[in-house]
């Protein structure tokens, strides 16, 4: 396995969000700021890493017919760990992400990687795959959140650089701003992906 290629894929050409358009619900809902995007991305990365690891370990034990319920139980376990862990350590972030943390269970990237990769590959490769996809997801969410925060709040990671008395474009922190920004981000990422593929 070529690690550089793997990460190039999950960050750009096959990025879960901008390449495969998976997990759009948390992507659109929580990225009103770069910090929220980062938090959501890292929480998902942890779940993805752990579920890939466990599912890969159990891949020869889980009967084929009940594999989806089995995966969901494993994923839900780690989501509960993240939910309670965030509540104990980063309470403010937990409050802003709110309902979307339990909803990581139904994030299609996680089930997608379990089904398409972890159930067929060795433990070490599944771990790398989980980290690569998780960080690709985090990357996309962070960029989206950063663009929306800069345009909508005149700030980056909570630090306001735009003078208080000047207006910011409020629409970008609201729901329609997420759709518009994601649309333009897809254009940009497709362009980058094409450049990478063409070398």
């Amino acid at each position: 396995m070529n690690y550089a290629d793997k990460f190039k894929k999950t960050f750009f050409t096959e990025n879960p969000v901008t390449g495969l358009l998976l997990g759009l619900c948390p992507t659109l809902a929580v990225t009103s700021s770069a910090e929220n995007g980062l938090g959501m991305g890292l929480a998902t990365t942890f779940v993805l890493l752990m579920s890939n690891l466990v599912i890969s370990l159990l891949r020869n034990i889980i009967p084929n017919r009940v594999r989806i319920p089995a995966y969901i139980v494993i994923i839900a376990t780690f989501v509960t760990v993240v939910d309670l862990g965030l509540k104990a350590t980063l309470y403010d972030l937990h409050k802003t992400l709110g309902l979307f943390i339990p909803l990581i269970v139904v994030n299609c990237i996680i089930l997608g990687r379990a089904e398409a990769f972890a159930s067929k590959n060795t433990v070490w490769h599944s771990i790398v795959d989980g980290i690569a996809n998780g960080l690709g997801f985090t990357f996309a969410l962070f960029i989206l959140g950063a663009i929306r925060e800069i345009l909508g709040s005149g700030a980056i990671l909570g630090f306001r650089f735009w003078p208080e008395e000047y207006r910011t474009i409020l629409l970008f922190v609201l729901a329609p701003g997420a759709f518009i920004t994601l649309g333009f981000m897809l254009v940009g990422m497709n362009k980058i992906s094409k450049m990478l593929e063409g070398k």
């Binding site: 207006r167 474009i169 409020l170 629409l171 970008f172 609201l174 329609p176």
Partner: peptide, 10 residues
């Protein structure tokens, strides 16, 4: 509509 939502005061 974009302006109305973004700059409600103006």
């Amino acid at each position: 509509v974009f302006l109305l939502i973004s700059f409600p005061v103006e």
